[in-house]
Design a protein around this nucleic acid. Sequence first.
DNA 1: GTATAAATGCAATAGAGTTGCAAATAGATG
DNA 2: CATCTATTTGCAACTCTATTGCATTTATAC
Lengths: 139, 139
Amino acid sequence: MIYGDLEAILRAHAMRITACRIDVLDSFLGTGHALSFKDLEGKLTQYDRVTLYRTLNSFIDKGIIHKIFSDSGFISFGICYDTCSPHHHHHNHVHFKCDACGNIECLPSYHVPVPEISGYKITEANLLVNGLCSKCISN
Amino acid sequence: MIYGDLEAILRAHAMRITACRIDVLDSFLGTGHALSFKDLEGKLTQYDRVTLYRTLNSFIDKGIIHKIFSDSGFISFGICYDTCSPHHHHHNHVHFKCDACGNIECLPSYHVPVPEISGYKITEANLLVNGLCSKCISN
DNA sequence: GTATAAATGCAATAGAGTTGCAAATAGATG
DNA sequence: CATCTATTTGCAACTCTATTGCATTTATAC
Ligand SMILES: [Mn+2]
Ligand SMILES: [Mn+2]
Ligand SMILES: [Zn+2]
Ligand SMILES: [Zn+2]
């Protein structure tokens, strides 16, 4: 992605421009799927692990990325779309995990179907779907 | 729960009868919600942490309980209903987490609504719903 | 350019869970 | 009931992930 655009995103979220933040943001915007800490650690070896952790946490705080909890406790991070602001995330899209390639994707055009549960009040719902992604189906 | 019934469950799953297993099983069957490792560790202080971990893992292997991953990475365990056997779990029920009391419940009578995702093949889906449970609504 | 608050790197720490191994014990057998 | 064996347990050590404290460096406002 163009450097100026990455800078603009950080500025829009009142964050200082640093090399690590630019590189992490670029990693998220340059891939079609969610990234794990290991993905970033493996790719951006020039930064300390702690700095990467802090970068991810600050991006979450600012509403730039969100944490995705998949089965087996595996954690990854996806970019936020519209309705996220500092200290308040609101997502209603489906998460997909491919059992072949292991990639986790946000599917922003698929909203989580929320069931009615009698006697309960529902405020949020998270759906994780497993299966084969479009790439792996055609291979 | 009656001791003989607990024994019978362990025998039905080809497990030896031990005090720890009886107590853990009794804890699960005597509560209306899922239990975390911390819940069990706090309640069954007479057993070593490692023994509790191993007990939970063997119950999962045998299809007696299943792991529930909720938001913020919090892990709890719920009893399995019908379709689970050694080394193969199959659940399609909704999980509910109450934001007031923190309890996590299996809702076996609510099946996860599985969306069609064009170009993808779906094999499994997990839905976690947040809100207020029936007890907390009436308080 | 200087001042200041924020960000970074490194070391130490915290927490969750697992593994190795010797001692204890459940269940089988005679 | 006594004995044998495989399983289970408890303890210590260890692994893995993530966070915290602190001194140093750096981004930004002036
Ligand atoms: Mn997402
Ligand atoms: Mn369940
Ligand atoms: Zn795939
Ligand atoms: Zn509640």
